[in-house]
Simulated assay, not measured.
Amino acid sequence: MEAIIWLGVMILFAVGEAVTVGLTSIWFAVGALGALITAGLGLGFWPQITVFIILSGVTLALVRPLAKKLLRPGYSATNADRVIGTVGVVTQAVNNLAGEGLVNLAGQVWSARSKTEEVIPAGQEVRVLHIQGVKVIVEPVTADQTKAV
């Protein structure tokens, strides 16, 4: 009877692992397998519980760090990242308060916002600091910075 219970517990954790993203319950399925084997050997309730807890803990301690390392969602660079650090020209004044501003970057027009609250007039060269949503965050390029580029 106990073996059937442990088999059910193992199947429950295995199915739970299969329907979730990432490793969440596989260690408990391994612990239940150990308890199932212990029950099959005719050992009592407490040895079964002890084997379940120890095997689950050991599996968790060994597998989780590796799983976190391998299953970590990483940053995927996009083509839009190419514009970070580039210099472009303001085609419509960048005004954060009015929610306006367009910048031409290598032939592509982007919505833009200023790093600070200052208004950047049309025709001013700007450098892209980062992308926030679908807008580039820019700062004016001074004459000294233009020479350095």
Rank of each mutant, 00 (worst) to 15 (best):
A18Y: 07
G107E: 13
T116C: 14
Q145L: 12
A32N: 12
T50Q: 09
V58W: 06
P65I: 06
A93G: 09
L7D: 01
V128M: 00
G85R: 00
L23A: 12
G133S: 05
F13H: 12
K147E: 11
F13Y: 11
K135G: 04
L102P: 05
V89H: 05
D144C: 10
A98W: 00
E100W: 05
V128K: 00
R64A: 11
K115E: 14
E125K: 13
L36N: 10
L55M: 09
G123V: 08
V87M: 10
L129I: 15
P73I: 01
T91L: 01
V87T: 13
R127P: 02
T146E: 15
G8Y: 04
A98R: 08
L102E: 12
V21Y: 13
E125R: 12
G74L: 11
I37R: 06
I5D: 03
W46D: 04
P140Y: 06
V90M: 03
G42H: 11
I84T: 01
T146M: 15
I11V: 15
G57H: 07
L55F: 13
S25D: 03
G44A: 04
D144R: 10
I49C: 09
P65N: 02
V9T: 05
A67N: 04
A143Q: 15
A143M: 15
P140A: 11
R127H: 05
N95W: 01
W46F: 13
T86Q: 11
T24A: 08
A39Q: 02
K115T: 14
I11D: 03
V87F: 10
K135Y: 10
T38D: 03
S114F: 04
A3Y: 10
V58T: 03
E139M: 09
V51W: 09
I11H: 02
V90G: 01
I5T: 06
V51A: 08
Q145G: 05
V119G: 00
S76V: 09
V103G: 09
G42S: 10
E139S: 11
L66T: 15
G57P: 08
W27N: 10
K68Y: 13
V21M: 12
I53V: 15
